[in-house]
Design a protein around this nucleic acid. Structure first.
Length: 725
DNA sequence: ACCAGAGATACAGTACTCGG
DNA sequence: CCGAGTACTGTATCTCTGGT
């Protein structure tokens, strides 16, 4: 839909307008498939065309792709492709190639050319070519083009009397089990002379293949029977063919070699333009008529203004023309040496102005901004897609110029009298045209949509859309949904970008430092140096850092340590952590003897701290332990007297601001969590057992544990490697 | 009887867009 | 940048309709 919007800066009507205009007209879209589709025959297997090659480079590409050296080569007949369907050995129908998926039914015309029954009971499609023998065509003076004559014969209703021949070269059946050689032999058995000759070749290189193809080609050029369109090379083995498969247009296992002709010289008489339905301008070179391969070439497309500039084609130039493929003429060379001395490059802008075409150069293209010209193209497209009979370019031009119609939808308001003002339109025609126009109100919705000429919505996309919606309301709905989806998608993309940014930031973040014993000792001396802090704050900090360093617990876990826990830790060297928000419920913290010793150093701090909070561990009166204090929190405020832990924010802030203010720590990213990292790193370095570390630290995933372990320094790696050697 | 406009079809190129 | 898919392009041919 974005492209739809893009296209409409050209001044064409906006879809909603068009849509509501159409609704006003009482248009009823019917869910009908058009009759013409029913007249077409569908191919069971798509009838693809062939990839073309003109030089060794292209043959090489093919040769490298197929990775085989066994081929079948055959002449490529210049005719009309057909496919004959046999069901259980009996001829049922014949179909022209058409658009490769479906073609015209030519069953009755073909009937005399093919056997009614195959030699075996087989269901398959026989592929071949309808053509006129060279010498037969020479006898026909009225026709210029061999293939077009055959095409005309195919489309004719009353069987024209023409010396048509047919030749078969392929048989397609389920699973495709045969080699091409086997196919050719089988065809010869069933169709005799109606089977195309073939040659089996084995080539070890692309060059060898090219030589063989070129020799084969020149051999057939002298052949008086076949109108030739090149030679074909196909992979013989069925399994390789199957593996290679096909792209949308070509099977990957076949190639047609065509002769690269030099072209025929002619003169460019002038340069004119055609205007597409979106206003796009395509320059056309008008030529002195020349005969190429049975057709007279008067015009050749220059594709676009850039191409025209690049080729530097000027009126009066001598140019070489070929028919690209067999149909579309193309300029291959501009003979610049033949130019007059005073020749100047062609001025597109001036020429457009001289031709009275109102244009503008927008976004790299010349675009027609002439409203009437555009309207003509638009109406023509509308009329053609909706098959409004007798409403052709000439009539449309009249209607637009006379301002009888100023938009596509004015067509529906036309009266017979208005139409009859135009030349060549009588009473009967005008009534018919009006009727044809009115009938389109009941077309299938998607046909109408295609007729509107929205860029990128042609018959193919129209068909796709028809699977989803069949009315204007549904379509408008769909467009809204799509717009929502696009917005949603943009949202997601933005989120993803943000996520990526975050990830990037995360990966490039300052790596958290891992604590070591020196850090702990530095901390203690730093705290002792502080003169501003009151004693019990210092005690609290020392105890907190000690716990963090020794247990590797998270700061949130340390915050909830109770009096009994710290006493147990002092006494037994381990405690159970029940407040842990993450990890296993029965988490424990362990201390070894060294750890216990370090904690022991802090015992005075602990007692003092508890004392300042009004917690008296020993009942001096009966010389016993005051168990009523066990459940109180170690890190509490004086006010709450151990009832509540310090607030999370306050506690972590206190812990981290000190860490930040220590000069020796500034270079590193040192936080409360650095103690956990240091703890894990040390544990791993001491035991080299990550699973053990995981269990101790209480991670669920071992990956989490490994993330904590600091990367080894170069020195450490070196010593380790030395050890292992 | 003749002519002209219009439709349908074959063919195979390039242009353009989209997504990997 | 490449491959795939779709849109669009010009000529010759027959057919059909209706005007002159």
């Amino acid at each position: 839909m974005t492209s739809y919007n893009d296209a409409y800066w050209k001044g064409e009507p906006d879809l909603p307008d068009v849509a509501y205009d159409a609704l006003d007209l009482g248009t009823e879209f019917e869910d009908i498939s058009r009759l013409k589709h029913e007249l077409k025959n569908k191919h069971k297997y798509p009838m693809l065309s062939l990839e073309k090659a003109y030089c060794l480079k292209e043959i090489k590409r093919f040769f490298n792709r197929v990775s085989t050296n066994a081929f079948i080569i055959q002449p490529k007949i210049d005719g009309v492709g057909i496919s004959c369907r046999y069901e259980n050995g009996v001829f049922t129908k014949a179909t022209t190639r058409g658009n490769s998926l479906e073609g015209e039914d030519v069953t009755h015309k073909i009937q005399g050319f093919v056997p009614e029954n195959l030699t075996q009971c087989l269901s398959c499609e026989i592929r071949g070519e309808l053509y006129i023998r060279k010498k037969d065509f020479e006898q026909l003076s009225t026709y210029k083009s061999n293939r077009s004559t055959v095409a005309g014969w195919c489309n004719s209703k009353n069987a024209m009397k023409l010396p048509i021949s047919v030749i078969f070269f392929d048989v397609v059946l389920d699973n495709d089990p045969w080699t091409l050689e086997e196919k050719s032999v089988w065809l010869q058995k069933n169709f005799g002379l109606g089977a195309l000759t073939w040659e089996k070749v084995v080539c070890s290189s692309a060059g060898e293949l090219e030589t063989k193809l070129r020799n084969y080609y020149s051999e057939y050029l002298t052949n008086k029977i076949f109108p030739l369109d090149g030679v074909v090379v196909k992979v013989n083995a069925p399994d390789i063919r199957q593996k290679l498969g096909a792209s949308k247009n070509y099977p990957r296992w076949a190639l047609a070699l065509k002769s690269n002709e030099d072209g025929i010289e002619t003169i460019v008489e002038g340069i004119s333009y055609t205007i597409g339905k979106t206003g796009k301008i395509t320059p056309i070179a008008q030529l002195s008529p020349v005969e190429i391969k049975g057709s007279t070439i008067r015009r050749v497309t220059l594709n676009n203004c850039d191409y025209l500039e690049k080729m530097d084609v000027r009126p009066g130039d001598s140019v070489l023309i070929v028919k690209a493929g067999e149909i579309i003429p193309q300029i291959v060379k501009v003979k610049k040496k033949k130019r007059a001395a005073d020749s100047v490059p062609f001025d597109i802008a001036k020429s457009l102005a001289n031709n009275n075409i109102a244009t503008a150069y927008r976004e790299g293209h010349w675009v027609c901004v002439d409203k009437k010209e555009q309207l003509q193209k638009q109406i023509l497209h509308y009329a053609q897609t909706l098959k409004i009979g007798f409403l052709g370019p000439a009539l449309i031009k009249k209607l637009v110029n006379e301002e009888l119609v100023t938009s596509v939808f004015d067509l529906y308001k036309l009266t017979p009298e208005q139409l009859m003002l135009c030349e060549n339109v009588g009473e009967k025609t005008s009534k018919k045209i009006i009727n044809n126009i009115q009938v389109t109100k009941k077309c299938a919705f998607t046909d109408w949509l295609v007729a509107c000429g929205i860029p990128q919505i042609g018959p193919q996309h129209g068909k796709l859309i028809s699977n989803v919606v069949n009315s204007l309301e549904e379509f408008v709905n769909l467009v809204e949904q799509i717009e929502e989806l696009i917005a949603y998608k943009q949202n997601i993309e933005e989120e993803q970008k943000l996520k990526q940014l975050r990830r990037h930031k995360y990966l490039n973040r300052k790596k958290r430092a891992a604590s070591q014993l020196e850090h702990y000792q530095m901390l203690l001396s730093y705290i002792n140096q502080q003169t501003k802090e009151i004693d019990y704050i210092k005690q609290r900090l020392r105890v907190a850092y000690c716990c963090l360093f020794l247990t590797g617990l998270r700061i949130s876990e340390i915050r909830f340590i109770t009096v009994s826990q710290i006493l147990t830790l002092l006494k037994h060297g381990y405690i159970a952590i029940d407040r842990s928000k993450r990890g296993p419920a029965n988490k424990k913290a362990f201390l070894n003897d060294a750890g216990k010793a370090i904690l022991q150093e802090r015992s005075q701090d602990i007692y003092n701290l508890l004392h300042s909070q009004g917690i008296h561990l020993y009942n001096q009166q009966n010389n016993s332990f005051n168990s009523e204090y066990e459940h109180l929190f170690l890190f509490s405020s004086i006010q709450s007297q151990g009832q509540k832990p310090l607030s999370r924010t306050f506690f972590t802030h206190r812990i981290n601001t000190i860490l930040k203010s220590i000069p020796e720590f500034q270079e590193q990213h040192f936080t409360s969590h650095s103690f956990r990292k240091g703890y894990i790193t040390k544990l791993w370095k001491d035991y080299q057992d990550i699973e053990f570390v995981r269990q101790v630290i209480g991670h669920i995933y071992i990956g989490t544990t490994s993330r904590y372990i600091s990367q080894l320094s170069d020195d450490e790696i070196q010593t380790k490697i030395q050890k292992s050697l």
